[in-house]
Design a protein around this nucleic acid. Structure first.
Lengths: 363, 363
DNA sequence: GTTTAGCACTTCACCTGTTTGAGTGCTAAA
DNA sequence: TTTAGCACTCAAACAGGTGAAGTGCTAAAC
């Protein structure tokens, strides 16, 4: 029977693992006879049946209907993932494909994340996900104004994370050298050091009062800063290979798939999930552990990606609860690590940095 | 019988329209009796049956199986769309929602397109699509170098379409005022006027030779230009509300839906399609008219979006061939026009233009 | 006390044949 | 040229039967 401390006996663990492995393999409920024959378990089917019944009572297994085999419950998967995940050895081909990522042309973070997600999807055969979270921690550390001519300049906002946004600003009038200098100084004095959510109307009004500069000048710049911050503040979630999910019988029910798709388009939930995730390890959310409850019957596995110690995104996959966790975890682990080191190494090698569109006054 | 010139008799047209309307309405094969009763066609079911048989022979109708009603063929839909599309009058609510789009906060083109696509999806209940095509026509009209300090500057590339890209460039050494000036001049002399695909290795080598500047300086800039052009050159296709399609019986077959999804992820095909589309009107691709042949049984409807006379994108929807064309076409027409005028009006009102990320040397 | 063989029972999946209803094509009459 | 009538076709829905897989339980074996 069950041990007094509530832990599973070794034999139960063995049987549970065998059942989960088998189910992951073929997707069907697994019966006692199958376990007896295919796993190295030297007990009769009757004994295994008894253990299975107890495992079900403990919540690790479920039975679709009376005369069906057993299927792992979410608790079962969780236990499996937490305590008996075996190490997956990547094949040569997989390693090669992963290394290939390094050859990707130098690109901005977004592009790299997307590429990685695509690769994750291809390697695991699940839906890849790339997340660019809200950099809530980011604050503006300084402003630079670079004047193109007397009535237009590029406003560069450098954030504490080392990322900068630039905006092309055109004034309706000529600004003197002196005004220009005063502008930059005032911006730095009043807004530098503030985080995205601190740049609010009061802060701006304070600045406007303190600056003593024509509001005609300040106004468009304020608008510009606002915009930029909101752009910076916007997270994004992208998926690659949603169609891959359709090959799994778990999603043969079109209704369930539809609900999952709907949930995925509510990107905010996923952003929240990723924002609250651990940075040091692969995160695994199984079934209803997902806050998004429509995502039941699906697992979300991802790892955050870093650059110079800051989280700049996450990559992972979404698939049915029944998935080859050891393989997937290994893949995501490697991939995220690879991307992180790529982002860091990248920095030291080159001076070319990602830029953006401006609109020129005339062609 | 069929008229000698191959055109359909009025009665055939009437019956064809009645069948298509009915099929669009309820999605099922429509029979002769139904047409006789529900449409204003004062002939017996037998007569209608005869006409239907002929319409089938002419290719406008199809029969799923012997004892089923008729279903419009792609040719039938095409004929319907080309010659008998009735004007759809938008409801107050629809007009309100469309006008609401105008209130969207000032944002970059991408965001606006995406918003519009979302709205299109919501209004039509099909999958929205937003396309940012390759601006193949774009050429670089001039370069500007804006020096931040002696070893870093922002390289601004203004394209003929009035859009500009900026890149932050940091050199490993100090550049003299004179070198800086020579650089800008050389860039303009050798690369200005070239289109994206003309900036090739030969052109660059020519410039490198002609410039007579240290290649240490030229090298990172070349890299930078290359990158920028490829970014500029990259189109993008985005979808909103893919799950909406699943409500239609056309996509109840999970295999077909899977193939469609796969095709949609091959964004290049759609980019090509949009690039070759007419700019002045709503484009309708029905079923296998799509070059992407997996998209059979689906229609793609879109209209290009303009800014100052240049195509900057397209918005539309994807749905089953059986769709309420008149309604959808009206929607997309209005939406795209709205966005275009918004982009143009927007320009004249504000001086704030979309910018991008730079990476600062240090935080 | 633990394990196992044996057996009755349950449930689903599959196959079969039958019925039903919608819709057609054809023919002959109006 | 149109229409009423009728035989025919086919898919979908229904009902019953069979078999396989797998369980739970009991009693015997270790």
């Amino acid at each position: 029977m069950s041990l007094n401390n509530g832990e599973l006996s070794e034999r139960k663990k063995l049987i549970l693992k065998a059942i989960i492995d088998a189910h992951i393999e073929n997707g069907e409920p697994v019966g006692s006879r199958y376990i007896m024959q295919n796993a190295q378990i030297a007990y009769s089917s009757a004994t295994i049946r008894n253990e299975m019944a107890e495992l079900e009572e403990l919540g690790y297994l479920e039975q679709p209907h009376t005369s069906a085999g057993r299927v792992p419950s979410e608790l079962g998967y969780r236990f499996y993932v937490d305590t008996m995940l075996s190490h997956y050895a990547m094949t040569q081909r997989e390693i090669a494909e992963l290394n290939n990522l390094m050859r990707v042309k130098q690109a901005e973070v977004d592009t790299i994340l997307e590429q990685a997600s695509k690769l994750a999807s291809a390697l695991t055969n699940y839906t890849g996900i790339s997340v660019k979270p809200k950099p809530t921690a980011a604050s503006i550390s300084r402003f630079e104004t670079v004047w193109v001519d007397s009535r237009s300049f590029i406003l560069v906002m450098v954030t504490s994370t080392g990322v900068a946004k630039s905006k092309f600003v055109r004034l309706g009038f000529d600004a003197s050298r002196e005004t220009a200098a005063r502008l930059a100084a005032a911006l730095n004095a009043n807004l530098a050091g503030l985080s995205a959510d601190q740049i609010t109307l009061p802060a701006i009004m304070r600045m406007e009062a303190a600056m003593g500069i024509d509001s005609v000048l300040v106004n468009p710049i304020i608008k510009c800063i606002y915009e930029t911050m909101s752009e910076l503040d916007d997270g994004d979630v992208r998926f690659e290979g949603i169609n891959r999910l359709l090959q799994y019988p778990e999603y043969a029910d079109i209704g369930r798939f539809k609900r999952l798709l709907g949930a995925l388009e509510e990107k905010q939930d996923i952003l929240d999930l990723v924002s609250g995730a651990r940075a040091d390890n692969v995160n695994i959310y199984i079934g209803s552990e997902n806050t998004v409850d429509v995502m039941q019957n699906s697992s979300l596995i991802f790892k955050t990606v870093h650059r110079r110690g800051h989280t700049v995104g996450a990559i992972g996959i979404i698939g049915p609860c029944r998935m080859d966790y050891s393989r997937v975890v290994t893949m995501i682990e490697h991939l995220a690590t690879q991307v992180s080191s790529m982002l860091d190494g990248d920095e030291s090698q080159t001076n070319l940095l990602n830029g953006g569109e401006h609109n020129a006054g005339k062609g």
